[in-house]
Computed example of a mutant assay.
Amino acid sequence: MSSPASTTESHSQLKAVGCLIGGISSFQIGATLAKGLFPLFGPTGMVGLRVCLAAVILLSIWRPTRGTLTVERVKLLLPYGASVAVMNFCFYVALVRLPLGVVVALEFTGPLTLALVGSRRWLDLCWAGLVVLGLFLLLRPEGATVGLSSLNLFGVAAALLSGCGWVVYILTGTRMGRMFPAPVATTLGMSTAAIILLPCLIPTIPTVLAHPWQGGAALSVAVLSSAVPYILDMMAMRNLSPRDLGILLSMEPMLGALSGFIFLHEALSIMRWMGVLCIAAASAGNVLTGRQKPLH
């Protein structure tokens, strides 16, 4: 029989897995809702609304105290916040031109490439090859009879640039996490991104006042795509190892494709579904076969 301590730990891990999957799902649902608001606000207006409203929500929950920021911390906060702004801006610019599943898969290649760079193991070369194969299947031209026509090149570039922003976010966010508690770091980063994206927000204010229901929907996007995922991620990280987190995050490209199919009726061809699957499999394989580092 299992001990009460092990049973409690198992329940905590199951709860953490549910939180992480809930956070990923919430982000994807928020993205589908945001895409439905593009005709009114446009992708740049939508990203301004989402990030700025999310910053207000986070600031209302976690308020940084005086003396939190020093010159050294500001130097790190600026690229961290800028990476949040670039990720969100480029993601929405790509989303108006490409299916959600393709955007998420292309963006996901950024952190996945970061994980594979510098590795000398032959198995990691296999995962890198799987990523290349996935990109080829996603980006190869297709006729209208197969499903989607050739992908918009500007949208592809924006999705890949969002992936580059994700890389900077990981590198700077790791250091931010050593300087601040996770909620404070997230709040500061989102607030910095909101300041950068203010030019995207200001033109939408008259539209929000004229269409309050759609403005409320934009607030829902901020909650679903930022506030809820961040809170659930924090809850999950308390009880899951980095390895388990990596495996679960590998589901994101597939969940993006499924969300686009279910909520936006974006039907990908079989080859592009295979491309998404290759990138998700490469991420999961890289985590499962990676060297285990001792916990300190």
Rank of each mutant, 00 (worst) to 15 (best):
M251P: 00
G101N: 14
S269M: 11
M235W: 10
C200Y: 01
R120D: 11
Y230A: 05
S3T: 05
P294Q: 07
V167Y: 08
C90R: 00
C200N: 09
G48R: 00
G155V: 07
E107F: 10
G129F: 02
R175E: 11
M46C: 07
L219N: 02
F91W: 14
R120V: 14
W122M: 11
V228H: 08
F180K: 01
D244P: 00
I24L: 15
V184D: 04
S162W: 09
S26L: 09
V74D: 14
N88K: 05
L249A: 08
Y230E: 06
A182E: 00
V167G: 08
F263Q: 10
L245G: 10
G118N: 06
L59P: 00
G18T: 03
M251C: 14
P253G: 06
A218I: 07
A159Y: 07
L139A: 14
P199V: 04
L20E: 02
V74Y: 08
K75T: 10
F38N: 08
S25G: 15
P64S: 12
L135M: 14
A54N: 11
M87C: 14
F261G: 02
M190L: 13
L130W: 01
R63A: 04
L160W: 06
T7V: 05
S250E: 02
E107M: 03
P79T: 07
L76Q: 09
R238H: 13
F154M: 08
S220Y: 02
